[in-house]
């Protein structure tokens, strides 16, 4: 189900995305979903209809014409929530559950870590941290954090 250029993607008055395929099928309320949100966020974006079925597939985001790409990016921005940790300001304790005060790319917040096993390694230097509500926090590169954050983090690894 590759996406050619002969389709329409628009936003209706209710703020939902409407997909009109080349064959003329109209699918209202499609939702873009990244297939590889961490490994390859810019590749493989599925447009899923309200019935849960795939209505379209975008091979690469940067191959989309600008207005449609903007629509998709907007929609992704409104749905995707994986704050990237920039700095760990403090942790309540080194024993879990532990409450962390963190700075993320989406502002400062706190998270509750249930246990060390909720920190998942991604590749060589990335981490995915799941908090008590199931929200995932991303650390793209441990070595990119400042020394104090790294020291705190190291106690849990």
């Amino acid at each position: 189900m590759t996406m050619d250029t002969d389709y329409q993607l628009t936003r209706n008055a209710f703020g939902r995305l409407v997909l009109t395929t080349a064959a003329g099928d109209v699918c209202e309320g499609v939702v873009p979903v990244r297939a590889f949100p961490i490994a390859a966020p810019g590749e493989g974006i599925s447009l899923v209809g309200p019935d849960g079925h795939e209505a379209g597939w975008i091979e690469r985001l940067d191959q989309l014409p600008a207005p449609q790409r903007q629509l998709v990016e907007e929609e992704l921005g409104r749905r995707e929530f994986m704050p990237q940790i920039r700095r760990i300001r403090s942790v309540s304790s080194f024993a879990t559950p532990s409450t962390w005060q963190v700075d993320t790319d989406r502002g400062a917040t706190s998270l509750v870590l249930w246990g060390e096993e909720f920190i998942r390694r991604l590749g060589k230097s990335g981490l995915l941290i799941e908090d008590s509500h199931g929200i995932h926090f991303l650390v793209r590169d441990i070595n990119g954090l400042d020394l104090a954050s790294r020291k705190l983090l190291d106690r849990f690894l």
Binding site: G77, R78, F81, T104, A108, T109
Partner: peptide, 10 residues
């Protein structure tokens, strides 16, 4: 509300 439209904390 602890997030804004663009999903930043606020």
């Amino acid at each position: 509300l602890d997030l804004d439209e663009a999903l930043r904390y606020g």
